[in-house]
Amino acid sequence: MGLMAEPTEEEVVREFVERTSRGETDGIEIEHRVAGGMPGEHRVSEEVTVSATGLARARSNDARASEASTASLDSAQTRDLFRRLGEGASNLVPRSQARFLPDSLVGAVTIKVDEHEATLFYLADQNERETQQQLLPPETAEAVNDFSRLTQRLLHE
């Protein structure tokens, strides 16, 4: 029996989109990170990881402090979060296509399906998206904002 080739990032994303459109979350984990900002200003580094079981872990680091928090989402919330990201994932770009100005606030979404992963990028700041003419369609912006809101909720409740 031959070893299967490692799937491309594109294939991992396609599998994620197919599974989540069917409401399947098994074997899926999403990590959403936002990092960057201007030196001398408030540089941001936040991340949230959501597993198929609904376990959500958030972490933030900035010049002043770092904090972490954990919560559980119910299966409907987890499915919805994953499905919405699946619907918008095609509008995020792989590293090879990511072109952002230095010091931009960049979002990265790592999609893990079984033991394979793909990381996609976008400009996290709405004003920077407009300035750099890298607008996201509303459904994609909403999906990544869901993860940002979840991070804020976990860290600041």
Rank of each mutant, 00 (worst) to 15 (best):
Ala124Cys: 00
Ala118Trp: 00
Phe147Gln: 10
Leu92His: 02
Thr25Gly: 00
Ala71Gly: 00
Phe82Tyr: 15
Glu87Trp: 09
Arg84Asp: 10
Ser72Tyr: 08
Ser75Arg: 06
Gly36Val: 09
Arg149His: 05
Val109His: 02
Glu18Met: 06
Ala58Ser: 13
Ser45Asp: 12
Ile111Val: 12
Ser75Glu: 06
Ser69Pro: 11
Gly86Ser: 03
Gly23Leu: 11
Leu101Gln: 14
Ser66Asn: 10
Glu115Tyr: 15
Leu105Val: 11
Gln134Leu: 13
Gly54Arg: 03
Ser90Gln: 13
Gly36Ser: 09
Val109Ala: 02
Gln77Tyr: 01
Asn145Trp: 12
Thr131Trp: 09
Arg99Gly: 13
Glu10His: 14
Ala76Glu: 14
Met38Val: 12
Gln126Asn: 06
Val144Asp: 03
Arg57Asp: 12
Val93Gln: 06
Thr119Lys: 02
Arg149Gln: 14
Leu120Asn: 12
Arg19Asn: 10
Gly23Thr: 10
Phe121Gln: 04
Ala124Met: 07
Gln97Asp: 15
Asp146Pro: 11
Gly40Val: 05
Ala5Val: 13
Ala63Thr: 10
Ser104Arg: 01
Gln133Arg: 13
Phe82Ser: 05
Pro39Ile: 01
His156Pro: 04
Ala141Arg: 12
Gln97Met: 11
Val13Asp: 01
Leu73Ser: 05
Arg19Asp: 13
Gln126Arg: 09
Val109Ser: 07
Glu46His: 12
Leu85Glu: 01
Arg59Leu: 10
Leu120Gly: 08
Arg83Gly: 05
Ile30Thr: 13
Asp74Glu: 02
Leu92Ala: 00
Glu41Gly: 15
Glu47Pro: 02
Ser104Asn: 08
Gly54Leu: 10
Glu18Phe: 03
Arg79Tyr: 10
Leu3Met: 08
Leu3Asp: 09
Leu154Cys: 05
Ala52Gly: 08
His32Arg: 06
Asn127Ile: 00
Ala124Gly: 05
His116Ile: 10
Asp74Val: 02
Glu9Gln: 14
Met38Trp: 04
Leu155Thr: 07
Asp74Phe: 03
Val106Glu: 01
Arg57His: 14
Leu73Ile: 05
Ala56Gln: 03
Leu150Tyr: 00
Arg14Ser: 15
Ala56Trp: 08
Thr140Glu: 14
Ala65Cys: 10
Val113Arg: 06
Ala63Asp: 09
Glu46Gly: 02
Glu24Ile: 06
Lys112Thr: 15
Glu31Pro: 01
Glu46Tyr: 13
Leu73Thr: 08
Asp103Ile: 01
Ala52Lys: 02
Gly54Val: 08
Leu105Tyr: 03
Thr131Glu: 13
Pro102Arg: 01
Met38Leu: 01
Ser60Gln: 02
Arg84Glu: 08
Ser69Thr: 09
Glu18Pro: 04
Arg64Asp: 13
Arg43Glu: 02
Leu55Arg: 15
Ser69Ile: 02
Val17Glu: 03
Gly88Ala: 11
Gly2Gln: 14
Glu128Arg: 05
Thr119Met: 09
Thr49Glu: 04
Ala141Ile: 05
Thr25Asp: 00
Asn145Val: 03
Glu29Val: 13
Val12Lys: 07
Val44Arg: 09
Val113Lys: 05
Ile30Asn: 02
Thr25Tyr: 11
Leu101Lys: 06
Gly40Cys: 12
Ala5Tyr: 06
Glu46Pro: 00
Gly40Ser: 05
Val44Gly: 03
Ser148Lys: 14
Ser69Met: 09
